[in-house]
Amino acid sequence: MSLISRRKDSVAVVGVGTTDYGALVGHDATSLGIWALRNAAQDAGIDLQDIDGLICQRLTDYQKFVQITNTSPKLVTAVPGAGRMTGGTIQIAVQAILSGMLDTVAVVYGNDGRTAGARYGGQGDNYGTGADEMWFPYGMTSPGAVHSMLFQRHAHLYGTKVEQLGQIAMAFRKHAGLNPSAVMKKPVTMDDYLASRFICEPLRLLDYCLINDGGVAMILTAGDRARDFRQRPVYVRGVAQLSRLAQGELPDDFGYAAMQRVSATVHEMADLKREDADALMIYDNFTPIVVFVLEGFGFCPRGDGGRYVENGTLELGRGRYPTNTNGGHLSESYMQGWNLQAEAVRQLRGGLGSRQVPDAEVVQYLQGGPLSTSIIYATEAS
């Protein structure tokens, strides 16, 4: 069992900062991270020099980052740019604070993918691990191809339909229409979804996340200090991760077994049940992963994910678990999980107007894939 589950200490998010999203010409990933961190520090009501730990993801140059921000952190570390590392980055921050070595840690992400011409998959992919190269001779040259094949297997086994994927795209676009920061706000109908062009059949353009520029930063601190900051604290009640890297990119069970183990761990750690969640934030790089994650984390029976998302189940005001209320990666912007962390915190603070989940007290982040992850955020420490 992890360190956090054996302690009564708590960790809270006390600052959140985001940049604009879209095509942000003149910025690289590092400057976008700086922009986000400055906003997070202002949100928390602190100076950058109050931060004694820095964990950054995908920044062009962490040394330049520290020099420009004129900080002197006791811990500086950088993690790879893949989105699967997001949960682990936050987990490192939590563990560093619980160890007593650090008081206030910033986790910072910057992405200039749109203006830099980023591509995910294929020989020009600078953000992968290289593990996918074994699939290239068979045409599996991108994450989209992997998810397309997984979806076809799911459809064969359980009767899942492309129209059910369309329901996911429609729900998240509806939420994006309520979010001033979202890149894509134009409503999507089922006819629009079915008319969108194939990228890797049967997945269409509207099944794919957006490649954009942007940055996100969060500031975390020990729970006994959290109420000294400007904003209402949001507590990290549980965080868990499990690798299934050895099973490769095409697991026979869609990652179900790994997600089941992560689910059990994170709920025990948080001392909360699945039913306590008021909203979900699901890593939606492609629509099929939403189906796999809902099954893997037990929000619907195995094989029923497609049927579960029908008829507005994920929508604000209709579903039991409104999901990706900011529009997610499909419609707000692809920030590799980070914009979902920001949205979780903001939902628990309240005040989001028409996209606010009423009386939200618990929001759960869910991620499938080779590093299955879950984080439970709550308004109370215990």
Rank of each mutant, 00 (worst) to 15 (best):
Q247G: 09
E201W: 08
P233V: 08
I219Y: 08
E201K: 13
F229Q: 05
D253M: 09
V216P: 00
P202K: 02
Q231F: 06
Q260A: 15
A222I: 04
R227M: 08
V216Q: 04
R232C: 04
C200F: 09
Y256F: 14
D207H: 06
D271Q: 14
N212K: 09
A270E: 06
A246M: 10
A258P: 00
Y208M: 13
R261S: 14
A264R: 12
N212I: 10
R230N: 13
L205G: 05
R225W: 02
A258Y: 04
L220T: 08
D252N: 11
T265Q: 14
I211R: 00
C200Y: 10
P233G: 03
A217D: 07
F229R: 02
D271S: 13
P251V: 11
A258K: 02
R204S: 06
L250E: 06
Y208F: 12
T221Q: 03
Y208A: 15
Y256I: 11
M218L: 15
Y256S: 09
Y235M: 07
P251I: 11
Y208D: 11
M269Y: 01
K273Y: 09
C209G: 12
E268L: 05
D213A: 07
R237L: 11
D253Y: 10
R232N: 13
V262I: 07
L205H: 01
P251F: 11
L203A: 03
L206A: 06
V266E: 02
F229Y: 15
G255Q: 07
L245V: 14
Q247T: 12
R244L: 15
A257I: 12
Q231T: 13
A264P: 00
Y208C: 15
E201S: 14
F254C: 07
D207E: 02
H267A: 00
N212T: 15
P233A: 08
V236I: 15
T265A: 15
V236L: 11
L242P: 00
A222K: 10
A246I: 12
V236N: 04
V239W: 05
V266D: 08
G214N: 00
R274T: 10
S243R: 03
E201V: 08
R244I: 12
M259S: 01
D228V: 03
R225S: 07
G214Y: 04
R227F: 10
P202G: 06
P202M: 09
D253I: 11
R204Y: 07
D228C: 08
V239T: 10
A257V: 14
V216I: 15
R244A: 14
L203E: 02
G223Y: 01
G238N: 06
D252M: 11
A270L: 05
R237D: 07
Q247H: 12
A246P: 00
F229C: 03
R237Y: 00
R232W: 04
E201M: 09
